[in-house]
């Protein structure tokens, strides 16, 4: 699914990712943990194609193709999905319009028939319900005035609608209380189908109680300094990050 090799990336001339290698096979769940500022969001953003991150060396193969060649929207259409750490508020564009435009673009690219408005509406309502979101929330501006939990669940909602192959979740757990966390985790687990892959970026291991990863990697100063199984997360929780750096 994804092969990252010796990835080095800069922001404003400052090296943030310092030689990252990571292989994610179909159906796998990888957790990336690490202290604040270690480069977790940067990695997620580089994979999603955000401007301002300059890849200096290394490569990223996604489904056998060079991912770094693609525009962000092309990556999304090809099935890469980034759930933002800080989802953006867009007043004046309704969540419904936004979701529809996004699903239309992705389906068109995949040669799937366009969903007409009623069909889309129905689908979006169902997904809302499964994420305990009030359907009224589709009429509101994108993330406008949403609580932290609502914003994160909105990301999961988008993910559910777009049916990506590779899901990057950047601190989807932060700012969620335990109930909201469970709902979000259920939303993610519902998408696990043995083919779809996940990279969970998180600072705390709490999320991993609900979404059980196959692998855990520890990122520090832009490098993966340790990899292991699920137990590594528990160890990190008990000992903190300092023993690893």
């Amino acid at each position: 699914m994804l092969i990252v090799k010796d990835l080095v990336a800069e922001v404003d001339g400052k090296t943030i990712l310092n030689g990252i290698s990571l292989t994610v096979n179909p159906g796998e769940v990888h957790a990336i943990m690490g202290p604040n500022g270690s480069g977790k969001s940067t990695l997620a953003n580089v994979l999603a194609g955000r401007d301002g991150y300059e890849v200096k060396s290394g490569s990223v193969l996604y489904k056998g193709h060079d991912l770094l060649e693609l525009e962000p929207e092309e990556r999304a259409r090809e099935g890469v999905f980034l759930a933002f750490q800080y989802p953006v508020e867009i007043p004046g564009v309704s969540n419904m319009q936004f979701l529809k435009a996004s699903v239309d673009a992705v389906r068109k690219h995949r040669n799937q028939p366009e969903l007409d408005s009623p069909a889309f509406m129905k689908l979006a309502r169902e997904k809302c319900k499964s994420l305990s979101l009030n359907p009224d929330f589709l009429k509101r501006g994108v993330n406008e005035g949403f609580s932290g939990g609502e914003k994160k669940r909105n990301e999961i909602l988008q993910m559910a609608l777009l049916e990506p192959s590779l899901c990057l979740l950047d601190e989807t757990d932060s700012g969620l209380d335990i109930d909201a966390l469970q709902v979000a985790a259920e939303g993610v687990n519902a998408l696990r189908d043995g083919q779809r892959s996940f990279i969970l970026v998180t600072h705390y291991q709490r999320l991993l109680n609900y979404i059980v990863p196959d692998y855990v990697h520890v990122l520090s100063a832009g490098k993966i300094v340790k990899s292991g199984g699920r137990e590594l997360a528990l160890e990190l929780e008990a000992k903190g990050y300092s023993w690893i750096q």
């Binding site: 999603a48 194609g49 955000r50 401007d51 525009e71 962000p72 929207e73 990556r75 999304a76 259409r77 999905f81 980034l82 933002f84 989802p87 953006v88 867009i90 936004f98 435009a101 996004s102 673009a105 992705v106 690219h109 988008q158 777009l162």
Partner: peptide, 12 residues
């Protein structure tokens, strides 16, 4: 905001 749209498959 533009990147947010693009990351959802919407062209620039």
């Amino acid at each position: 905001s533009l990147f947010y749209f693009q990351s959802r498959g919407i062209d620039k």
